[in-house]
Each structure stands twice: as structure tokens, then as C-alpha cells.
Simulated assay, not measured.
Amino acid sequence: MRVLVIVKATPESEAGILPSEQLLADMGRFNEELVKAGVMLAGEGLHPSSRGKRIEFSATGGKRTVVDGPFSETKELVAGFWIWQVSSLEEAVEWVKRCPHPHPGQEGTIEIRPLFEAEDFGDAMTPELVEQGARLREQLQH
């Protein structure tokens, strides 16, 4: 099962305060463990929302509105993420428990969300769509 592991933002991360050298080293060692265990598929930190944009869609989808950051509700924002391949949600929880605290000295949250797989969509995922997805994943690896 693949999961998205979301490191939630804090007021400090939203202010653009960068992690310390020690935290970068600790996270680097943790990422090495994840890679050696075959768990980590991807992972990145994100710039503050002040450097981002949102595109809001109208109910009909016909209108799109671009909103410049920063965005309110820091606790709902994302500071970084991993994509992991694990055997279960419980395994992902155990890995997160070993993770260095991403925001030392303050409260922090890491959220784990399963990613959809083709079989989760039932009959709506036709053989043609499965083949298209496989073709796109193949192209991404080159």
C-alpha cells in the first residue's frame, strides 16, 4: 500500500524559517533508513504558502480563480511530504513514530493518508484506463 505522509506547517515554517543543520542531518539519516528499508518512494519539503497559488474551481467547473498565497489556517497547510510503500497503515504509523520531530520546540502534526490504487475504483477503472495508468508510470520512470 502506498501512503502520503504529510508534515503539517507551523507559523514558523510559514514564516520561511528554515530547519537547523542538526534537523537536516537527522532527517537525512531517517530518510536513509526509509530508503534502505524500501519504504520511501519520494519526499520533499515545501516553501511557505506565501510563495504558492491556489486555483479555485466554480461549482460547474467553468470558472477558475487564481488566489495568491499566503493562505490562512496554518494548521491546515503542508510543510513537506513523503510517499511511502508500506505493508499497512500500522507500519506507516511505526515509521512516523521514529521520525525526528519536524518542528522542534513547538507542537507539530504528521498525517498519514492512503493513496488510491486502481482496484479502489472498481468498475469505473476500465482495462483501458488501467493500461493508460501503467503506460504513464512507465514514462515517469524514464
Rank of each mutant, 00 (worst) to 15 (best):
S50F: 13
K53P: 12
D68T: 14
L41E: 03
D68A: 11
A79T: 05
V86Q: 03
E91T: 07
A79Q: 06
A37E: 06
V93W: 06
V35I: 01
E56L: 14
R54L: 01
R64I: 11
E90W: 01
L77I: 08
A37P: 15
V35Q: 02
A42V: 07
E94D: 15
E94N: 15
T74I: 02
W84T: 08
T74R: 01
E44N: 14
L77F: 13
N31P: 15
R54Y: 02
A79S: 02
S88K: 15
E90T: 11
W82G: 00
A59S: 10
M27P: 04
A25R: 14
M27L: 15
M40V: 11
G52F: 04
E90K: 10
R54W: 01
G43K: 02
E44I: 08
V86I: 01
G28N: 12
N31L: 03
T60M: 09
V35W: 01
A25D: 14
G69L: 09
Q85S: 07
S88G: 12
G45K: 05
M40I: 08
A79R: 01
W82T: 05
S49D: 00
L41D: 02
R54G: 01
A37T: 10
K63E: 11
M27N: 11
E90A: 11
L77S: 11
G52S: 07
S50H: 13
P48S: 05
G69A: 12
A92L: 09
D68M: 12
L34T: 05
F71M: 03
E44A: 12
N31M: 09
L23A: 10
R64W: 13
F81D: 03
G43L: 00
F57Y: 11
I55G: 07
L23G: 07
T74H: 00
S58G: 15
G38Y: 04
T65Q: 15
L46N: 08
L23Y: 10
K36N: 10
S49V: 00
K36W: 05
T65A: 12
V66E: 03
L41F: 02
G80L: 01
M27T: 13
V39N: 02
L46H: 06
K63I: 14
E32A: 08
S50K: 15
L24F: 13
L41A: 04
G38D: 06
E44V: 11
S87A: 15
S50G: 10
I55R: 05
G69F: 09
N31W: 07
E90L: 09
K53C: 10
E94K: 15
G52W: 13
V39G: 02
G28D: 14
G45Q: 08
E91P: 08
E44K: 14
K75D: 07
E76Q: 03
L24V: 13
E76L: 04
P70N: 12
H47A: 09
A25N: 14
I83E: 04
F81A: 03
E56G: 10
G38N: 03
S87C: 13
T65C: 13
V86M: 04
L24H: 15
E76K: 01
L46G: 10
K63F: 00
R29F: 10
